[in-house]
């Protein structure tokens, strides 16, 4: 229940943690009580014990030539199927065993023209429907920004076409930075940070689509507006127990929690 000016309950930091001061994703695996962080500056994925605190070292590190990692910035953890999914190179998804450690190759890779992957940023898995959703922030040939939501079979590999593509003007997607899925109902929640160069973009919002949506589909809900205080939402996490969604906002350097029972 942290509020304004609260002191963090714990900090993971420092040389021993192998973290840098530039992290863009964190995922919690509640089944195995582990924290996952991408470390793009070292081409590594770090795994910490769930209760890690202070200058604590990771319990596993995925890094090295065989991993094919370049700058893993974001990731998704699938505790049901014991896999992790990592967007890489802008146009690929690498899949590793959840227990991978050291210099290990990916189990499979989604990459190729058919995949439609371009500037892929965030991944979320739906273990009930066996689907993998990718959010992108692609740029067009003339510099125009447009993101899409791509849905794949979870086990897709190679040059696999997406099962569904949410794209078009009705979606209002400019660039997606983090996604989450509420699996019991099949809702995709996507943080949409808005036009990249703008300090205070007027097109940022938190959008909600259904996992079966396809084509030029408007979001079911858009969390935005003066009451929301949202300006540049970049992160999204869910708290089903309290029917809340948590959104990080880059322009405010803040994190807000919203009561959003419609989604749960």
């Amino acid at each position: 229940m942290a509020k304004e000016n609260a002191t963090p309950t714990r900090l993971i930091f420092g040389q021993n943690s192998k973290l840098s001061r530039t992290m863009h994703d964190i995922r919690y695996d509640e089944v195995n009580d582990e924290l996952w962080v991408g470390q793009p500056f070292a081409g590594a994925i770090l795994v910490f014990r769930g209760g890690a605190n202070g200058e604590e070292a990771p319990i596993r590190v995925i890094q090295g030539p065989k991993t094919q990692l370049e700058g893993p910035d974001r990731l998704e953890v699938d505790a049901v199927n014991n896999e992790i999914y990592v967007p890489e190179y802008g146009n690929a998804i690498l899949v590793y065993s959840r227990t991978a450690n050291g210099d290990v190759p990916p189990l499979r890779k989604i990459q190729g023209k058919m995949t439609q992957l371009k500037s892929v940023r965030s991944l979320s898995v739906d273990t009930i429907r066996n689907l993998l959703v990718a959010g992108t922030q692609a740029r067009g040939p003339k510099g125009e920004q447009y993101g899409v939501l791509l849905t794949y079979d979870r086990k897709a590999q190679g040059d696999a076409a997406p099962l569904r593509v949410i794209e078009g003007d009705k979606t209002e997607i400019v660039r997606i930075t983090q996604t989450a899925i509420y699996e019991p109902k099949g809702w995709i929640l996507a943080a949409q940070a808005g036009t990249h160069e703008a300090l205070h973009p007027d097109d940022g919002f938190l959008g909600v689509w259904h996992i079966n949506d396809n084509g030029n589909v408007a979001p079911r809900w858009k969390l935005r507006g003066p009451s929301s205080t949202l300006i540049k939402p970049r992160g999204i996490a869910l708290i089903p127990k309290h029917k809340e969604i948590v959104v990080s906002d880059m322009a405010q350097n803040a994190v807000m929690s919203y009561y959003f029972p419609e989604v749960f």
Binding site: N5, N214, A218, P219, W221, R224, V255
Partner: peptide
């Protein structure tokens, strides 16, 4: 399923949920 979804593509507009946060974590200093 894809065709069905496309057919059912909503004409309705999105519901804009402009609601205040229940909590904000921010350093005001």
């Amino acid at each position: 399923q894809t065709r069905a979804a496309q057919t059912a593509e909503r004409e309705a507009k999105s519901e804009v949920a402009d609601r205040a946060p229940v909590r904000t974590i921010k350093d005001t200093y």
